[in-house]
Lab assay of single mutants.
Amino acid sequence: EVDTLELTRQVKEKLAKNGICQRIFGEKVLGLSQGSVSDMLSRPKPWSKLTQKGREPFIRMQLWLSDQL
């Protein structure tokens, strides 16, 4: 189980620290539009309420944070 709230907090922190905009992060890392990324980072759904497809971007965020992506 992933703590989506904590994960998105860490992602936002790393984006800010490295000067990466959400649009680029969305396109290059998540394969999503800036609007989708913005929504996901500001209002993450609980892991238990996400479908497999809904969980994929959060898994990619985890990999990106651990420099595996």
Rank of each mutant, 00 (worst) to 15 (best):
Q52E: 13
K53W: 04
I24H: 13
P46R: 11
L65A: 01
P44R: 12
P46D: 03
P57D: 10
N18E: 14
L7S: 12
N18M: 15
Q34A: 15
D39K: 02
P44A: 09
K45G: 05
W64C: 00
R60T: 06
G26M: 07
K45F: 05
S66P: 00
E27Y: 06
G26V: 04
L5K: 15
E1T: 05
M40L: 15
E13Q: 05
L32C: 08
W64H: 00
V37H: 03
E27P: 09
S38R: 14
Q62H: 08
K49S: 10
L69C: 11
K45S: 07
P44G: 04
L7V: 12
L50V: 01
L50W: 09
F58V: 01
V2F: 12
Q34N: 14
K12I: 04
M40A: 07
S42L: 10
N18S: 13
N18A: 09
Q62I: 04
L32P: 04
T51G: 08
P46F: 14
K14M: 15
N18F: 11
K12V: 03
S33A: 12
C21Q: 07
I24Y: 15
R55Y: 01
R60E: 01
I59N: 09
Q22P: 11
R43C: 08
L41G: 09
Q62Y: 04
E27M: 08
P46K: 10
S48Y: 10
E27K: 13
C21L: 11
L7Y: 06
K49H: 13
I59H: 15
L15E: 06
K12Y: 01
P57V: 09
S48E: 09
I59F: 06
I24A: 09
D39C: 08
S38C: 02
K49M: 14
L63Q: 15
P44L: 08
K53F: 02
V11L: 04
R43G: 05
E1K: 12
E1W: 05
V11F: 05
F25Q: 00
R43E: 08
D39T: 07
Q22D: 02
Q34G: 15
V29W: 09
L32A: 04
F25P: 00
K17R: 10
P46H: 10
E13L: 08
K45H: 04
D3S: 10
V29C: 09
K45M: 11
S42M: 14
R9F: 07
Q52D: 14
Q68G: 08
K12C: 05
R55G: 01
K17L: 10
Q52P: 14
M40G: 04
L30D: 01
L30R: 07
S42F: 07
Q62R: 14
F25D: 01
R23T: 07
Q10H: 05
T51P: 03
L15V: 07
G19M: 04
R23V: 07
T51K: 09
V37I: 07
M40T: 05
P46S: 10
D39E: 14
P46N: 05
K45W: 03
W47D: 01
S33I: 10
L32R: 07
L15M: 15
R9T: 08
S42P: 07
I24N: 06
V29H: 02
A16E: 09
E1G: 10
E6K: 12
P57C: 08
W64D: 00
R9Y: 04
R9P: 08
L32S: 06
F25L: 03
V2P: 05
F25C: 01
D3Y: 03
S48D: 14
V11Y: 03
P57H: 12
G35H: 12
S66E: 11
L7K: 14
L69H: 07
E56C: 00
S66D: 15
P44F: 09
C21H: 12
R23H: 10
E56Q: 11
S66C: 12
F25R: 01
E27A: 11
C21P: 14
E56I: 15
I24P: 00
A16F: 06
E56Y: 05
Q62G: 11
Q52G: 07
A16D: 11
Q68I: 08
R60C: 01
R9D: 06
L65Y: 01
R60Y: 01
K28G: 07
V2S: 13
G31D: 08
K14P: 06
L65E: 00
G26N: 07
I20G: 02
V37W: 11
R9L: 07
K45C: 05
G35R: 14
L41R: 05
Q34W: 15
R43I: 03
D67M: 05
W47Q: 00
G54F: 11
Q52T: 14
E27R: 13
Q10D: 13
L63C: 08
V29F: 07
K28T: 10
S38E: 15
S36L: 14
T8V: 14
T4L: 06
R9A: 12
L30F: 06
D67V: 01
Q10W: 04
T4C: 04
L32F: 08
M61W: 03
T4W: 13
G35F: 10
S66V: 11
S33L: 11
V37P: 03
R60D: 00
M40R: 08
D67R: 13
K28I: 02
Q34D: 10
R60N: 02
G19P: 13
L69N: 11
G31P: 03
T8P: 07
L7A: 08
S36R: 10
K53T: 07
L41A: 05
S36D: 15
T4D: 10
K28M: 07
V11R: 08
I24L: 14
V37G: 06
V2Q: 10
P44W: 09
D39A: 11
K12Q: 03
E27G: 11
G26T: 05
I20T: 11
S42Q: 10
Q22Y: 10
T51F: 13
D3N: 13
V37Y: 04
G35E: 15
Q68E: 13
K49T: 12
Q62K: 15
G54W: 10
I24D: 12
E27C: 09
E1I: 12
I20C: 04
L65N: 00
L15F: 07
D67L: 02
G19H: 03
W47E: 00
I24W: 15
S36M: 12
G31W: 03
S66T: 13
K53P: 04
P57T: 14
R23G: 09
R55C: 01
D67W: 01
F58Y: 15
P46L: 14
R60V: 00
R23A: 09
K14R: 11
C21Y: 02
V37A: 08
L69T: 06
E13K: 09
L15T: 03
T8I: 09
E1A: 09
L63H: 14
L41D: 03
R43Y: 14
I59D: 01
G31T: 04
V2A: 10
T8D: 06
R60L: 06
M61E: 00
Q10P: 07
G19E: 02
S42H: 13
E27D: 07
K12S: 02
L41V: 01
L69P: 07
I59Y: 11
G54R: 02
Q22L: 13
Q10Y: 03
T4H: 06
G54Q: 15
M40N: 02
G31E: 02
D67Q: 15
K17Q: 13
K12E: 03
A16N: 06
T51N: 10
W64E: 00
Q10C: 03
P46Q: 11
K28N: 05
V11P: 08
S48A: 11
